[in-house]
Nucleic acid binder design. Structure first.
Length: 559
RNA sequence: GUGCCCGUAGCUCAACUGGAUAGAGCAUCUGACUACGGAUCAGAAGGUUAGAGGUUCAACUCCUCUCGGGCACGCCA
């Protein structure tokens, strides 16, 4: 194959696009065709399958099979001698309702080793237009420690950032810090109450129900009492807020989650942006006064109710600065705005999008991912949580309990819009019940093969190109195929913004390795075969490391 | 009452957004190294996709209704 050949998936997509046009099937973009390519569930259906004829048949209401035949005929010259896919695709076939299946040549399958080597850390990067993405996530109010729900959002957002970056997008990650407002005021009162309990005279009233009840405030009060026993309310407010925020950032850092930017609501208020945004909305005629309040006519933009911007007491609602904040996201030039929110915010999406549409922005550029709740189990016992009651499980506790890798893996292993049952016992068990170890074990195992190889040869890798055609065993070919499917798994994760798609892929890759390993001894007296198998191991390891890295997991050499 | 998410093997979940014979892991049962890590590998069994209709070449997927679970529906944040 040629040196600068495009990845096979891209090459096939381009061939299909041209064939579709030539055969009168229709004009499609590369993106359209890429979406119609899939790795078939069953190997007998080929290495890559295209169902674009099925889609075309739907559009023009005719039988799909003849369309697939026409497409196949148009593709035929491309796999014949001199065609773009010559030597890479051995054959195609039309099957089922109208699938066009591609069967790779053995040379192509084997060439993934060279492709992994050549691409290095960029392996699997799809050919996409790079976008400027603002990814906002966690954004927990600094009124208490992060919970497991935040942990899930943190793992999801961080992994998503890694995936989008790997795909060539320019990503800025941001944490919106609600560092002022009603909840922070309540936090200040709560701390002051706790402080008085320590320094006296103790308050006679019981602690109001809406105060934050958690024990962490008692600890903070104890600390403050050493420094400033007579702290004013304002001092309490700032002290609690800042100390909690410091703790949040520490938790995130220990979870290996960092943000490019922390965006302060307080600073947003000082900047005058909120007023300017309101002015802009007024100028656009989407604001009106009623019942002493100021309203946004959000129903004109798809919301089911108009929303209050300024309450009759003169204060802004929560929405108002948030509108200004998102306006500022657009003003900073981001082409795609991704927000990860908890399930309690789903009703908020429509009004947020409406507000941005009202400002003249393209609301379809906003993608909101709702991360569903986490239910925590300790074996059979369910652990309930509630921030106010102070009876909750923190991200910190989960990290301490099960470790960072297992924690992140469990948060990511399910798709984010489904509830997650997180079994602490399972996550911390270092047994074969635990899927994260299965994947990491494959990586570590290869490391020890490498050590064996190094002992024999004095090198950790083949010194030059290997003869990959020596890899003939069905399980080896299977492993090579799975390595080549990384591209497909990554593209799926990028398109849907679902990191969990990498989990079954990596499990499959690890499995393909373990199976091949069980049948084929790597280091033998056959020098050429040993080199080829060693290269296969090293490429497998490279993709495992890459995939684990995209999930934010370590790739250990020993376990 | 209204909206959103969900209901798939004994358990936890997939099924590439409408595609091919609904797949994995665990649990259960049966097997496998005198060699590179047994945290591994091979095999068996397990299903009327909650239920009932509908749409079409094709439905776990879309529409309607019913049942069951979760989360939201403020001039709260």
């Amino acid at each position: 194959m040629s040196r600068a050949a495009a990845p096979i998936r891209t090459a096939i997509a381009e061939a299909v696009r041209q064939a579709a046009s030539a055969s009168g099937l229709g004009e499609y973009t590369s993106e359209d065709v890429l979406c119609a390519l899939e790795v078939p569930r069953e190997e007998k259906h080929g290495d890559l399958s295209c169902h674009i004829a099925l889609r075309a048949s739907k559009e023009r209401k005719c039988a799909p099979r003849p369309l697939a035949d026409k497409l196949s005929a148009a593709v035929a010259p491309m796999i014949a001698a001199g065609g773009a896919l010559y030597g890479r695709v051995a054959r195609t076939s039309v099957e089922g309702a109208g699938f066009l299946n591609f069967y790779y040549s053995e040379a192509e399958i084997v060439s993934v080793l060279a492709q992994v080597r050549a691409a290095g850390d960029a392996y699997g990067r799809p050919s996409l237009q790079s976008r400027r993405v603002l990814l906002e996530y966690v954004s927990a109010n600094p009124t208490g420690p992060l919970t497991v729900a935040h942990g899930r959002q943190a793992a999801l957002g961080d992994s998503l950032a890694r995936i989008l970056r790997h795909c060539g997008h320019r990503v800025t990650t941001e944490y919106y810090n609600n560092d002022e407002g009603v909840q922070i005021t309540t936090l200040g009162h709560s701390l002051q109450y706790r402080l008085r309990q320590i320094t006296g005279p103790a308050p006679e009233e019981p602690m109001p129900e809406n105060y934050y009840q958690g024990e962490y405030l008692i600890d903070i009060a104890r600390q403050l009492s050493q420094e400033r026993p007579k702290a004013t309310f304002e001092e309490c407010r700032v002290y609690a807020r800042d100390l909690i925020m410091t703790g949040i950032r520490k938790d995130l850092a220990d979870f290996d989650v960092t943000f490019d930017s922390y965006y302060s609501q307080e600073e947003l208020g000082r900047s005058g942006r909120v007023e300017r945004t309101l002015e802009e909305l007024r100028k656009r005629g989407v604001v009106y006064e009623s019942e002493g309040a100021t309203w946004l006519r959000s129903t004109d933009y798809g919301d089911d109710k108009d929303r209050v911007l300024i309450k009759s007491d003169g204060n802004y609602t929560y929405l108002t600065p948030d509108i200004a904040y998102h306006h500022h996201k657009f003003e900073r030039g981001f082409e795609e705005i991704v927000n990860i929110l908890g399930p309690d915010h789903h009703g908020y999406i429509a009004r947020l999008k409406a507000s941005q549409a009202a400002l003249g922005h393209d609301a379809t550029r906003i993608r909101v991912l709702i991360a569903q709740l986490v239910t925590l189990y300790e074996g059979d016992r369910q652990v309930r949580m509630s921030t106010r009651a102070g009876e909750f499980v923190t991200l910190r506790q989960v990290m301490d309990e099960v470790g960072r890798d297992a924690g992140r893996f469990f948060f990511l292993m399910r798709k984010f819009d489904a509830h997650l049952d997180f079994d602490l016992q399972l996550a911390k068990s270092q047994s074969m019940d635990n899927p994260v170890f299965y994947i990491q074990y494959a990586h570590a195992r290869i490391e020890s093969v490498t050590a064996n190889y190094a002992e024999r040869t004095g090198r950790r890798a083949p010194s030059g190109p290997v003869d990959a055609s020596l890899l003939k065993h069905p399980l080896e070919l299977r492993l090579l195929r799975v390595i080549g499917q990384f591209e497909d798994a990554l593209a799926g994760a990028e398109r849907t913004l679902e990191p969990y798609r990498l989990v079954p892929y990596l499990t499959e890759l690890a499995q393909a390795f373990h199976r091949s390993y069980a049948e084929n001894r790597v280091v033998t007296d056959d020098a050429a075969l040993t080199e080829a198998r060693m290269e296969l191991c090293l490429c497998t390891q490279a993709v495992l490391r890459l995939g684990l890295g995209l999930l934010g997991l370590s790739a250990p050499s020993k376990m």
